[in-house]
């Protein structure tokens, strides 16, 4: 199991949600919250996608900040 932890202070919730929707067709991620983190849990076989997702979210957050 791969768990991505997004600190809400660094990764705005709304942006993460939108990115998760974009990736929904390609993976099976379970979303939970554990203050101050948003957690996305991927199955082990989706490790590659999980990492791509993390980068995707970071790119979105950066674009939004600009």
């Amino acid at each position: 199991m791969i768990v991505l932890k997004f600190n809400k202070e660094l990764y705005p919730k709304e942006i993460v949600f939108v990115c998760a929707q974009d990736y929904a067709p390609y993976c099976h991620a379970a979303q939970t919250e554990d203050e101050p983190y948003l957690l996305y849990t991927f199955p082990e076989e989706e490790k590659g996608i999980a990492r791509e997702f993390a980068n995707y979210v970071l790119a979105a957050v950066r674009s939004h900040a600009v």
Binding site: L10, Y11, R51, R62
Partner: peptide, 18 residues
């Protein structure tokens, strides 16, 4: 931090925390 991380997206998977 965002800008530097963005520059590395092609070379690495990047995770941020505080």
């Amino acid at each position: 931090i965002y800008a530097a991380s963005y520059a590395f997206l092609d070379k690495a998977y990047v995770h941020l925390d505080k």
